[in-house]
Design a protein around this nucleic acid. Structure first.
Lengths: 254, 254
DNA sequence: TCGCAAGACCTTGTATGCGAAAGAAACCAT
DNA sequence: ATGGTTTCTTTCGCATACAAGGTCTTGCGA
């Protein structure tokens, strides 16, 4: 099997309902969407994708169905395509995410175990370190940072100890945006983000739910600020990362 | 096709990504789960279900995949089964739901159009009327009330005008519980619920977000109170409605 | 040159076949 | 009688076949 473990961060806490093989396929497709190899609004042909992943249509189809339930792809009259959110939809998604992640932070501060606190600290530490590093190109930076960022937020969500939450988050986070956002951050904004991560981390470990909650909300809203500045008006059509296409010129297959 | 339009409330706002046929299948299965024809934790055999619905395994499989992404069924080592939530998981789901529906109510109060306000009023009115009616049996009552209740909450969610929210709610509401809950409500509790619905309705129409928010949270939490009293300890195993099995004795197919 | 229509091509939706793996049952031995 | 092993049955996972519907192209006529 030829599945690339590229930005292949598995959905994290696999909800114990999927077996690896299966979620690997989904993750592979998801990765293609988040990092921009499949652009927003682009059509997806089952056969092509199947060949590309070295398998038959059936499992691909299944993965796409799951992704549809998570709101990442849609079915058009005939065919699949990745969703291309309008600016309003993006705003909605961020507001919702602010609400949910605040909830997560609040509960993490309340209920996180020692070990989970440690995980949050570690995730923060890694990201803090990574924001100081230098990178060969913007793509690599975005890739690394987005991955670690995702890990941090996921750790907090898990630390909330709400069994239902991780699954729901998958339906809220807009992959491509979080990814390309990191190519939009200025140095100052990156520092600010890092600072808030640290503060959130502290609030959780000091068991200060209200503080963790409001910090997280603020953090997400500031994320929206960055996105809002960079997303063109209404129908976004490719708001997100052309990064991959700009930086990986070899694979410009049509 | 032999799909029953029984408790076949379509997912409401079909996220514009599914076509009727498809969502009808999903709804049919969902209905079987919510009203207890398929019990929590019960195994699902693709072939059986397919025959039962008068179709092949493939579309059934697809529907199940979608339901898995929504956290309503899981894949075991080999096979499907409906999720059987532990008491803790149910608590988590209700807390999350409280958070999300508060968010919905808040935004509904802020952003609902005139027409949407009217829809909320109407949904409340219908449920208010229905709680006065008399019913032939407990099953019918639960069925009608659960349906209208769902409609009311869905209307509020839609009135929030957050495009992302309806889809997310599907992953949070535990079907079987909302259904059987209505067989647990005492007369007083039903009245209380009705009262809160009215208050929520008012708060939304008077554009009082904070009030709508806290009322909704309270409403959900009180819902949890009822559930908490009726759900047996940890691993629930059939906490929910045996209603269907008790009241529809003819279809006791094993 | 442009518009419309017919045809070819492509893509999905559903059904079905087959191999593999899990589960159940039966059987043997201790 | 019980435990372990072996066989047998069930059920899924994946691949593939075929039909229906959509899309694009091409060709003809105005």
């Amino acid at each position: 099997m030829d599945i690339d473990n590229f930005v292949c961060e598995d959905s994290g806490v696999s909800p114990e309902g999927e077996r690896n093989e299966r979620s690997a396929i989904r993750a592979a497709i998801q990765a293609r969407i988040t990092d921009g190899r499949i652009r927003p609004g682009e059509r997806i042909v089952e056969q092509k994708l199947a060949e590309d992943l070295g398998m038959s249509r059936t499992p691909v189809r299944e993965a796409l169905t799951a992704l549809m339930a998570l709101g990442q792809v849609t079915r058009t009259r005939s065919g699949w395509e990745t969703v291309d959110h309008s600016r309003d939809e993006l705003r909605d998604a961020f507001r919702l995410r602010a609400s949910l992640e605040s909830f997560a932070a609040f509960n993490a501060a309340l209920h996180a175990t020692e070990e989970q606190q440690e995980n949050v600290r570690r995730a923060y530490g890694q990201m803090h370190a990574a924001s100081g590093r230098s990178y060969s190109d913007a793509f690599e930076r975005a890739q690394v940072m987005a991955g670690l960022n995702r890990a941090f937020h996921q750790t907090v969500v898990i630390a909330s100890n709400n069994t239902r939450l991780p699954g729901v988050m998958d339906a809220v986070v807009i992959g491509p945006l979080v990814f390309s956002a990191f190519s939009w951050y200025t140095e100052a904004q990156l520092e600010r983000s890092d600072f808030l991560h640290g503060a959130i981390c502290d609030a959780i470990c000091e068991r200060d739910p209200r503080r963790a909650e409001s910090l997280m909300a603020e953090h997400i809203f500031e994320g929206w600020d960055v996105v809002a500045l960079n997303v063109t008006d209404s129908q976004s059509n490719g708001h997100s990362s052309d990064l991959w296409h700009r930086l990986q010129p070899d694979s410009r297959k049509k």
